[in-house]
């Protein structure tokens, strides 16, 4: 039981990271109809910025993170203003490629500005751990789990209960009609890009202490977030979040409990394979609605 709890808590922590990244991808997909392949790269850039503010700006970590959130926000706004807003009439497949160009620009900028050496980023809450049902967990992990859940609850509250959320949902459902109804869709899209940037840097700051801040710090997160979106379904905002937690939990459980069977190194492959089989039977994901095609 203690081991199970330990696994579950650790999965919830990585699940939060995947969920934040997936939420960033889905909000862009729903408002701009773009698969945001550069989510990880932009998150990486701003995580580097946080590390720089912390290490060389000699700021306390919380302030550095706030500064990183600000740069992420600005970066998102800039990307929307300079590129996305002008690319409305481009075919959907070509639009995705814009984010590939963004990856190249951001990677190039990051290695020019921050260098290519991996940098350390400490945990937000240093030291201290306590027991839950026999499992030990650090305060930082608890903070990550709670913060992730709280942020997502806030997001869903705004989405469902406020005027702003209504604007986002109408834009997501039909951009043209929303504009005719007087929804400021341009502002909605801009805020969506800014928000995706912020979610990216938060995911980066959460995952960075486990490894180091380098150019690939969010690569695995990006792939898992994309797969979470498919598992949960691109048609809803909360499907990908559920998908993200499921992937994190399934991966840790299979890796641990498969160990006696020699399955530990095959854990990730098995999870991906089961997701593939799942979407063959439910092509629109867990929560996805079926899109009726007209001839």
């Amino acid at each position: 039981m203690a081991i199970f709890m330990q696994l579950l808590l650790r999965s919830l922590e990585t699940g939060s990271v995947y969920a934040l990244a997936a939420l960033g991808i889905i909000i862009i997909y729903r408002t701009s109809n773009i698969t945001h392949f550069a989510q990880g790269a932009m998150g990486m850039f701003n995580t580097f910025a946080v590390t720089f503010f912390f290490l060389y700006g000699r700021m306390p970590l919380w302030l550095a993170i706030l500064m990183g959130v600000a740069t992420a926000f600005l970066m998102g706004v800039l990307v929307d203003l300079v590129i996305i807003r002008r690319a409305k009439r481009i075919a959907p497949i070509s639009k995705q490629i814009i984010t590939l160009g963004l990856i190249m620009v951001v990677l190039g900028l990051a290695s020019t500005v921050f260098g290519v050496d991996p940098l350390p980023l400490p945990k937000l809450i240093q030291g201290g751990e306590f027991d839950v049902l026999g499992a030990t967990i650090s305060y930082n992990a608890v903070f990550n789990i709670v913060f992730g859940l709280a942020l997502m609850s806030l997001f869903f509250y705004i989405l469902q209960r406020t005027k702003w959320g209504l604007a986002v949902r109408t834009t997501a459902s039909n951009e043209l009609t929303a504009r005719l109804m007087g929804v400021p869709t341009k502002t909605v899209t801009m805020v969506a890009w800014a928000l995706a940037g912020v979610l990216g840097v938060l995911a980066g700051v959460m995952i960075a202490p486990a490894t180091k801040v380098d150019l690939n710090v969010l690569d695995a997160v990006q792939i898992n977030a994309l797969i979470a979106c498919v598992l949960g379904g691109f048609q809803s905002f909360y499907g990908p979040v559920i998908g993200a937690y499921i992937i994190a939990i399934a991966k840790n459980m299979i890796v641990f409990y498969g160990q006696p069977l020699g399955l530990d190194v095959w854990g990730e492959q098995l999870v991906l394979l089961s997701i593939l089989i799942f979407i063959i039977f439910r092509p629109n994901g867990i929560i996805g609605k079926k899109i009726v095609k007209k001839v």
Partner: peptide, 11 residues
């Protein structure tokens, strides 16, 4: 960086 910008411009 220039290549990335070029890709975006071409698209």
């Amino acid at each position: 960086i220039v290549n990335g910008i070029l890709i975006i411009i071409v698209i």
